[in-house]
Every structure is written in structure tokens, then in C-alpha cells.
Design a protein around this nucleic acid. Structure first.
Length: 275
DNA sequence: TTTATAACCTGAACGC
DNA sequence: TGCGTTCAGGTTATAA
């Protein structure tokens, strides 16, 4: 479900009721997520205050004086802020109960998500194994055409895989990778190392624009994405190619095609996007 | 070192 | 209705 805009929407949604609030208790109903949820957080974080709710890539970071709780929503996760006592539903795996009467609730049917702990004694959270190798944030100045061009040289993987590689840049998931490539007129199977400087510039700009626009719209609603307030995102109405195989290209009218790359669906217009 | 593949798990949608 | 198949928004560990 969540790509970066959805994670950012989630962050913004839970902040008003969760930041600067004190944890009353943590309930782990099913700790068998992608990695086991460390049971010690229940005792460790009792009576601790959430100083800040940040984000790095698709990881939500709940910072406390004792360390940071890393939450990843995987493919099907969703984090909502609810009044305490809200009925527990299927796949509600973890509750962070706050003293202000709200609860941060993690629901994740496929359990590809994760809840991990980085202790303050282990240094800054950016040193965490899962964060240390991540590429720059897509909307930062650090992610620019020079950086992208240099890293892509000699690379033989497809540009689609390259864009989706979180070591290159975080946050460009399947939907937004497809959309950015379409807007840039670049075929998803083109080899990363074959892009010209100009194409890198166009692509970088489009990745930034697509993600910024999606955040603005509150994320993409596919199936069941809801922001923490329960509102759906509206970006799906703006998709040009994703999920539109068989339909006509909004630019030229040719038929949108669907192929599988790295076990993920790619959508493109053969006429508008060149190898 | 780089790239490709398998794996984690559930549920919705579809065809028969 | 029911059963089997296919597909899904992510990312890591391991193999090649």
C-alpha cells in the first residue's frame, strides 16, 4: 500500500495527537511481522515521551529520549491515530497507547511491515543497519541530476530498477517510478548507464514533481489506503500509466502496455517512451 | 561489485 | 457457491 507520499501523509496525520505525548503502554498482539517486534519496547517505552515523529525514506521514526522506534508499513500496513478503546480489528498487530487518550494503531494484513528499536546507546538512528545505506531523500537538493548521472554510469540494470533502488534514492516505489518514467519519455527497460545527462535531469525533476504532487494530494488511493484520519488519497485520479494497461496513452492515444520487470509490473507507452 | 532471484504473508479479484 | 490461480503499493538476504 504505502509509497513515500502515503508514509508522509501518515506522519502528518498522527503528529498532532502523538508528538510530545507520553506513552502509557504498548500492546503487541502479533509480533510476527517481517522481523519479530522486540518485546522489550513494551517495558522500555512505558512512561516515555515521543519527542518527535520523523521520517527517513519509508521509515517512520518515533524519537524518544531512550532511542528511536522505526516503523515500516511494508506493502499493506497502515498506521492510524484513534481514540482509546476503539474496537480492535483483524490484523491490528501493535498499539501504542498514549496518555492523552489516543492510540497509534498498526494494522498490516500481509505483515511485511516492521517495528524495530534503535537504542540511544547505539548512536544516531541514521546509523541503523536499515538506514545507513539509504540514498538521499528525493525532494532534497542532494538528489540532483549530477548525482544521478554520476551514479548511473556503467550501470547495466534497467532504469526502472535503478530508480526503485533505495540505495540510489529513497521513496520511488512502483507507482511513482512508472509515472516518472512516462513523464520523462524514457522506456523502463532502458539501461541506466545509457541515459544522457539531459535525460537524467528530466527524470530527476519528474521524480521530484510526481512525489511532491502526490504528497500534496494525500497519497495514492489503491484499494484501501487511508490516511490516519481515515480519508482516502486522491492521487490515483492523476495516474497516466500505472494500472492502465490496455487503455490509451493520454499523450498520443497508443495502447499502454504492461510488462514484468524484477517481478514487478511496469506500465508504459511504447510510442512516448524510448529505449 | 553488480545484478537477479527468492522470500516474507494475506486477501481480493477472477475464471471455471 | 466453491475452488484454484493470479496479483498486489516493499525490501532484504542470498545466489549467480
Amino acid at each position: 500500500m504505502p509509497e513515500l507520499p502515503e508514509v508522509e501523509t501518515t506522519r502528518q496525520g498522527i503528529r498532532p495527537n502523538a508528538e510530545k505525548q507520553t506513552i502509557e503502554k504498548i500492546i503487541i498482539r502479533n509480533g510476527k511481522l517481517r522481523w519479530p517486534v522486540p518485546e522489550k519496547i513494551a517495558t522500555l517505552l512505558k512512561d516515555t515521551t515521543i519527542d518527535n515523529i520523523g521520517r527517513r525514506g519509508k521509515y517512520l521514526l518515533l524519537q524518544t529520549p531512550k532511542g528511536t522506534l522505526l516503523i515500516h508499513l511494508g506493502m499493506s500496513g497502515n498506521l492510524r491515530i484513534l481514540p482509546q478503546g476503539s474496537p480492535v480489528q483483524k490484523h491490528d498487530h501493535v498499539d501504542i497507547v498514549l496518555k492523552n487518550g489516543f492510540v497509534i494503531r498498526l494494522n498490516d494484513p500481509r505483515r511485511f511491515g516492521s517495528v524495530l528499536w534503535h537504542d540511544i546507546n547505539e548512536g544516531g538512528v541514521s546509523e541503523h543497519k536499515l538506514l545507513s545505506k539509504l540514498g538521499p531523500e528525493p525532494l532534497s537538493d542532494e538528489f540532483n541530476s549530477d548525482y544521478f548521472y554520476q551514479l548511473s554510469r556503467q550501470r547495466k540494470m534497467s532504469i526502472k530498477s535503478f530508480v526503485m533502488n533505495s540505495n540510489i534514492v529513497v521513496g520511488a516505489g512502483n507507482i511513482y517510478a512508472n509515472e516518472s518514467l512516462f513523464l520523462s519519455g524514457i522506456h523502463p527497460e532502458k539501461l541506466a548507464g545509457k541515459l544522457t545527462k539531459k535525460q537524467c535531469e528530466t527524470l530527476v525533476n519528474n521524480i521530484k514533481q510526481v512525489l511532491a504532487a502526490a504528497i500534496e494530494q494525500g497519497g495514492t488511493t489503491l484499494k484501501d489506503f487511508l490516511s490516519p484520519s481515515g480519508k482516502p488519497g486522491y492521487f490515483v485520479q492523476k495516474l497516466n500509466v500505472y494500472g492502465r494497461d490496455g487503455a490509451s496513452c493520454p499523450q498520443c492515444g497508443a495502447t499502454i502496455e504492461r510488462i514484468i520487470q524484477n517481478q514487478r509490473a511496469s506500465f508504459f507507452c511504447r510510442k512516448c517512451q524510448k529505449k
